[in-house]
Write a protein that binds this DNA or RNA. Structure first.
Length: 267
DNA sequence: CCCTGATTCGC
DNA sequence: GCGAATCAGG
């Protein structure tokens, strides 16, 4: 049960987190719950980032527990100097975040770091579907050759599909949208039987679906990520991709693997 | 209501 | 260490 937080996963978590994506978003992309994300983030030690609430005066359901701590004083003292997280994320730091927030969900991340989020979507932006919240700036300054991370050729055939992360130390190229949708779709159904309200799930699924389907035109350069997103050295392969694929021949080999294998591999 | 993140606590 | 349950602010 203990989810295995591999370096891979953690790296992605860190990256996405740093990008200012909401915990829920990250969770969705990693195929875990937001709680898992938050919990892990905490344990990982990374966790600055504006929180809607400050838990100084936590209501104790038990009234005493093990913390007699003077909440009042504590509350006063605690003032995270919250460094604008999203703010310092520049467009330069293009990353694999992609798929993130479709149109209907601006969420907190959008207003905060729209540029960062939108930028990577550049290729997709052509669709103009996802770019809704995107600030003109981001669109105006489209990366010369930074394609979207894996707008993987959804499913399609039967043999080859999805991604196999692990180019060197690089973060996985956005885990297959198909897979995500797949799981996401199944999860809520089984997981939230008590709540017959598909609203949230429905919306999310729809959003995701909306993003995936729009013909993701693979750009003219391989979008296999190299290096660590967020770091200066990060870049995409850039080689000429195979027709209809986002990756060049070499990386396509790495990227596309049997669906079965992927199951073990991803998420 | 919905969203969000934060903390607690059983596992 | 993990994450569901719970809490709490917008």
């Amino acid at each position: 049960m203990a989810m295995e937080w591999t370096e891979e996963t953690i790296a992605r978590l860190r990256d996405l987190w740093q990008q200012g994506l909401s915990t829920a978003e990250i969770g969705r992309q990693l195929s875990v719950t937001k709680n898992a994300v938050v919990g892990k983030a905490h344990r990982l030690g990374l966790k600055p980032r504006p929180s809607p609430i400050r838990r100084g005066a936590k209501a104790d359901k038990s009234a005493d527990k093990a913390t007699p701590a003077p909440a009042a004083q504590d509350a006063a003292a605690r003032t995270p100097a919250t460094p604008a997280p999203a703010a310092d994320v520049t467009v330069t730091e293009v990353s694999v975040a992609v798929v993130a927030t479709p149109a209907p969900e601006p969420t907190a991340a959008a207003p905060a770091a729209p540029a960062a989020v939108a930028a990577p979507v550049a290729p997709v932006v052509e669709e103009n579907t996802v770019s809704a919240p995107a600030p003109a700036a981001a669109v105006a300054a489209p990366p010369p050759s930074t394609p979207a991370p894996a707008a993987a050729p959804t499913v399609a055939d039967s043999a080859a599909d999805t991604v196999s992360p692990k180019p060197a130390a690089a973060p996985a190229p956005k885990a297959a949208p198909a897979a995500a949708a797949e799981e996401a779709a199944a999860r809520p159904a089984a997981k939230a039987p008590r709540k017959a309200t598909p609203t949230r799930a429905e919306r999310a699924a729809a959003a995701r679906a909306a993003v995936t389907p729009p013909r993701r035109r693979s750009s003219q350069s391989c979008c296999w990520p190299l290096g660590d997103p967020g770091t200066p050295g990060f870049h995409f392969c850039g080689a000429t991709p195979l027709p209809g694929k986002p990756y060049c021949a070499e990386h396509a080999q790495l990227a596309y693997v049997k669906l079965r294998d992927r199951r073990d591999n991803v998420a």
